[in-house]
């Protein structure tokens, strides 16, 4: 099955930069991003001073990104930024760099080291290239990544709340309320604080948390839950449909363990 690729290893030195570039674009249309990236890197290696090399470098980063090869996409984008910081594609290179972290963010339960790096790279896009067309979507992605970091704190807070380690849960939810107020998780964090303070018997702290929730997020379902808890008409355990088998199904099969 290696027949088709024999020509690929033929020395490309004989071809001009433009021909290799076109061959790379052809590969891109054929959805073979990895092959396209390889051609683009050849253009850069053989004709480093041509104008083609500059365009090939940014296309190389784009191709690697599409091929989910985030490592090489990052190094190609970084090389572009080192050589051509002032070119019009520099904003796109910085944006690609941020995307390479952002697209690897997985759902909340997993590694959050990437979220942090994504935030820093996105901030670079917003600050260095404020008027480029990528700044706007970078701001949007920045908020999403920031929200994601808050979701991680909430996940750990719920872990401790479920296991009735209330002080640990309280500290995690307070981090969300104090450092992540702009995210969508603040109302839930406030409600969880009401739950945790009540479980410890700290009625007045629960009431202050409920008041803040009511003042800022009166229309949310979280506020209704807190209101019910604080006024004593909280929902009972059976009402929540909590018999033994549904718990097993929910926790073991579906993985929702709350």
């Amino acid at each position: 099955c290696g027949g088709g690729t024999v020509s690929r290893d033929a020395p490309l030195d004989s071809l001009s930069a433009e021909e290799i570039y076109q061959r790379a674009e052809l590969e891109l249309e054929k959805e073979d991003e990895e092959e396209a990236a390889r051609y683009f890197s050849e253009v850069e290696r053989l004709y480093p001073y041509s104008d083609w090399a500059k365009r090939a470098l940014i296309m190389q980063a784009f191709a690697y990104h599409r091929d989910r090869d985030y490592e090489s996409a990052r190094s190609a984008a970084q090389r572009y930024l080192d050589f051509y910081p002032m070119e019009e594609d520099a904003a796109y290179a910085q944006y690609l760099l941020a995307l390479s972290y952002y697209d690897q963010i997985d759902d909340v339960g997993r590694d959050q080291g990437l979220t942090f790096q994504a935030l820093q790279a996105l901030r670079a896009v917003i600050e260095n290239y404020p008027d480029s067309e990528y700044a706007r979507s970078a701001v949007l992605k920045f908020d999403l990544a920031f929200d994601h970091l808050a979701a991680k704190e909430m996940e750990i807070g719920r872990y401790y709340l479920k296991r009735k380690h209330y002080p640990a849960a309280i500290n995690r939810f307070r981090v969300v309320v104090e450092e992540f107020q702009t995210t969508t998780h603040t109302p839930e964090a406030l409600h969880r604080l009401v739950e945790a303070y009540l479980s410890l018997g700290l009625e007045d702290e629960a009431r202050t948390a409920g008041a803040i929730l009511g003042y800022n997020y009166r229309s949310t379902e979280w506020y209704q839950d807190s209101y019910a808890l604080l006024t004593g008409r909280g929902l009972t355990l059976e009402a929540a449909g909590d018999n033994w088998l549904t718990t097993v199904y929910r926790q073991v099969i579906r993985g929702e363990w709350l």
């Binding site: 909430m154 719920r158 839930e188 739950e195 009540l198 909280g234 929902l235 929540a240 709350l258």
Partner: peptide, 10 residues
């Protein structure tokens, strides 16, 4: 107090 935890997650 025994507080039933709400199962909703943002």
């Amino acid at each position: 107090r025994v507080v039933p935890l709400s199962r909703r997650v943002t």
